[in-house]
Amino acid sequence: MNLLADALASGTVTTGEAVTFWILAPIALGGAIGMVLARSAVHSALLLACTMLSLGVLYMLQSGPFIGFVQIIVYTGAIMMLFLFVIMLVGRDSRDSLLETLRGQRLAAIGLGIGMALLLCTGLARGIGSVTAVGLDEANANGNVQGIAADLFTKYVFAFEVTSALLITAAVGAMLLAHVERRKGDRPGQKELSRLRFRKGNYPGPKAGPGVFATSDSVATPALLPDGTESERSISPVVPVRELTPAEAAPKGTDGGKRK
């Protein structure tokens, strides 16, 4: 730790720092771009975690070991895991379709993004293009954590205390939003289910199996009722109804041509 701090805690950029930057910056950028492009939410999350880890190292590189570790522990460790949990709960099967539904949205977004980036870079280059950093050597003289603590508990103590209120509010809010209250009677019991089954207008018998009475035994082929109509009830709602083409509906000749 000391070694790292000694090596990097300077106002000037050393070669080692430059090398590290040039390795980590592409990784962070690549992770970010990959996150936006990835079709699976899980991949996005993992690529974002990658970017965040790189950023954590970059914080350490800039004399911020405390904030760097917080980044890794809180962000990558806790927040990203929360993301993964939620993905697991809701978004696992919902892949984004690549079709854009809003006309011109993608083009406008990319155009505006590039414009934004160019503007920011121009501003940075013209504003602080050749600034020399003061460095945190002096501030970190007693150690980075000690320096932050000294400021946090004196100068920013009020804001720090307010964050506690924010966090507890967030926790309670999340509980309220995520919690679904269900009383004992809400779930139908066996009695209610039987009543439902024998209520007027409902056919209490078992549903016809798929493929029964049909020329095709596919599960997507609905059963035929005695009057010849197709029974919607015989097929699963998740399976789309399949219309047979005349070629498919034609006899397959599996009976050895006896019916010709």
Binding site: L102, Q105, A108, A109, L112, G113, G115, M116, L119, L120, T122, G123, R126, G127
Partner: peptide, 28 residues
């Protein structure tokens, strides 16, 4: 007012770009 939050976000970003551009023009 399409109800698509992304359209609204697009206008926010446009606004941000305009603000940044104006800032740069004023500063430099």
């Amino acid at each position: 007012q399409t109800g698509f939050v992304r359209s609204y976000a697009l206008s926010i970003l446009s606004g941000a770009v305009v603000v940044v551009a104006a800032l740069l023009v004023v500063t430099f």
